[in-house]
Design a protein around this nucleic acid. Structure first.
Lengths: 341, 341
DNA sequence: CTGAAAGCGCTAACAA
DNA sequence: TTGTTAGCGCTTTCAG
């Protein structure tokens, strides 16, 4: 166990006041270059390391950003996190990451913990089931910057960052229609979450625009658990009009769906065309390769991180930032190709 | 902006001492149930929230665990992190996560930052290029628990947690041999990292055991960047003896390899059989499905988290823990099937 | 340019 | 069972 050296120790060693040491260490302008250098040198030699608890306590600021995500272990989310971490690290911020595991209760708990931990800002992607948003009040009340990404909720003064899900849904659907699909099915996630609701809206819009009436049978709301792909299969089988085009709210589900459909002898894209969402690596690997929407996760992460930090630094006013919409892209692959049957 | 309420405020309000408030809040046994309840109630009403900076400063403990990983955005690592987060969260610990992006320099920096942030413990999976380990000295010297997982380095009193890479490599290779492969190739990662060195050792051992001499041409050391799959292809093409079995150090690479080989008309598994590593979701999706080694990432994360926490709690002595070896599993799929040519 | 000293809010040893 | 009080180590205002 090494004894910790404090600014007092340094002060004593160098016959200066602790204040001078503190100022030197923080590169305060009011300190002469000479003493500054002398102190820095001594600090290094002595193996001085600043005690962040004390500094934080004194400054009431932690240089830490809290992040709450539904799950860490999805391709999309880990990509986003990677981007956030990059942005944070570049600016000298730490990241405390926690996962809600799609549970509102855990989300509340994590939020509270992060608050207590004194994070300078909070970034959230909402849990599947969250329907009450009071746990964010503590942040807004204290004017701690709060930002939502991907799974967002509109709160005053809280910027959001995501893609235009409605447009993406629209494009995905129109693509299916343009490839000749008449009987569409949309496998959606929890419609309470913005992203799924909007993708559905885009789906509907595209149908309507192309003169196809939207019926409830064109939609299946699920929890997007690939284990429960049976539900989807059942729905497809029992459809009166043979489904010939499916738009699924994520790639994992889409891939699972392709696998199962292939198993029961349905040809893709000949009999059913499929579009996924996210552009996960698997979408490119599966055969037939999956048409999907590219969601720029890494970029989203970097941007989200940067914008909240620049707000913390006072560079930008987050309140005025409103929402950032990233560009997505429809990636057309084999699963919607127009082959001769 | 809400005024923050401190234990002093509460103390004044309730006509007790700050110490009593503090004790009540921490559920100290020496406080009567009555006052405890009274204080807790008042604290809630007043919207009291403990100031962790002050508590940390006083206790010299942060309830936070630092994690340094090479990259956040790989399936395997995000799975591990998910497990660690689960374990930490269950025990009331926060997680500060940072990525080294495979750079030694960044790893050093992150390590230092985490040290300064006062983490109670550190968990590390080493960067690709790390070859100097002095940045961990600050931790060992101060007796801050340090644990390595997956990409490990043996330091006195630092437990490691991983799988038996040598055995896994051996099994993968023997499987190829048992399927009739004679001219094997191993695509390895940086051999300075334990996992790759050991997988290679297993590869060699299996060859030797089966009477196949190991030659340098049987090995290609790469940085496992899927972008650089060309190198691998080149190596295969220029091989004197036609390669008929490849063992790659991860699934991403293996999948890329399969894709490229298929492109140039090589049949898998008829002409070349392939084994990957990790059991990423893509391994199951690619056609032909990839034979691989299942690396239980989530379990590793949970275990790693739990063991470091139980050490912090004094339940277990980490020093005596040594290393934990998790069970892996060879998953046989189509890419090594013995079809008639 | 430098120093003295008052916090920041909580914990814990010692008293009562 | 409760209170007093001295830190924890750093920042920062106010003086000099």
């Amino acid at each position: 166990m090494q004894k910790k050296v404090t600014i007092y120790d340094l002060a004593k060693m160098l016959n200066v006041s602790p204040a001078t040491v503190s100022r030197s260490l923080n590169d305060h302008h009011s300190i002469s270059k000479k003493t500054k250098e002398r102190i820095l040198l001594a600090a290094n030699e002595a193996g001085y390391r600043t005690n962040k608890f004390a500094a934080n306590l004194s400054k009431q600021k932690s240089n830490t950003i809290g992040v709450v995500v539904p799950k860490l272990n999805s391709y999309f989310m880990s990509t986003v996190l990677s981007g956030i971490e990059k942005a944070a690290n570049d600016e000298g911020y730490n990241l405390i990451i926690s996962q809600s595991l799609e549970s509102e209760k855990k989300e509340k708990l994590n939020t509270k913990t992060l608050y207590d931990s004194g994070v300078d800002a909070l970034m959230v992607s909402l849990a599947y089931e969250t329907s009450n948003y009071e746990h964010f009040d503590t942040f807004t009340k204290k004017e701690i910057p709060l930002l939502f990404f991907d799974r967002v909720f509109t709160l005053p003064n809280c910027p959001t960052i995501l893609i235009d899900n409605k447009l993406a849904g629209f494009q995905a659907t129109e693509h299916l229609i343009s490839q000749g699909c008449k009987n569409l099915l949309h496998i959606s996630g929890n419609l309470q979450r913005n992203e799924y609701a909007e993708r559905l809206q885009g789906f509907k819009d595209a149908m309507v625009k192309n003169g196809i009436p939207f019926r409830t049978s064109n939609l299946l709301e699920t929890d997007l658990d690939p284990q429960k792909i049976d539900e989807v299969l059942k729905h497809i089988k029992k459809s009166k009009n043979k489904v010939d085009g499916i738009f699924l709210a994520n790639d994992t589900m889409a891939v699972e769906c392709i696998k199962e459909l292939k198993k029961i002898g349905i040809k893709i894209p000949e009999e059913i065309k499929i579009v996924g969402f996210n552009n996960d690596p698997i979408s490119e690997i599966i055969s037939p390769a999956l048409t999907t929407i590219d969601y720029p996760g890494y970029k989203l992460g970097v941007l989200a991180g940067q914008s909240i930090i620049s707000h913390l630094n006072g560079t930008i006013n987050l309140e005025s930032a409103g929402s950032i919409i990233l560009k997505h892209k429809l990636i057309i692959r084999e699963s919607t190709e127009n082959k001769l049957n």
